[in-house]
Amino acid sequence: MESLTNKKKVLEVKPLNFLERAYLPAIASGLATTMKHFFKKPVTISYPEEKREFSENFRGMHSLKRDENGKERCTACGLCALSCPAEAITMTAAERQPGEENLYREEKYAAVYEINMLRCIFCGLCEEACPKEAIYLDGDIVPADYLRKDFIYGKDKLVEAPLNQ
């Protein structure tokens, strides 16, 4: 069949000469390149066991902070959610009941606080917006997972561990 564009080029295939037909020199030069890399510094690291040094202002997973008495700082003001360009943060506020003063710093607290890590772009605007210094992106790289629902991190994963543990 005739070509539609007439742009086809037919390459001339020359017969191989003796050295090329012999294969061995080509294999030897290839192996030499491989062998050379045995004595070089490896360019990769074995990630989960070994970690690269992060920059000081690296932004990783969020953590919700506690104050010096171990009370949760977050007061569910919603400024992080307002500033979030990816709309990854949602929260539900609740009123602190009498007897919970050692758990929450203000009279209002976040009963539910969720960050969708698939939406989050780790820009750090929530950290900047927070008036209570409650959220910081000082964690690790967010680990991979299998299901989408597992990327919605609730307070169980985000809140810092209590002080005395």
Partner: peptide, 9 residues
């Protein structure tokens, strides 16, 4: 409406 939501949401 107490603590139900923020007005801007």
């Amino acid at each position: 409406f107490r603590f139900k939501n923020r007005v801007w949401f």
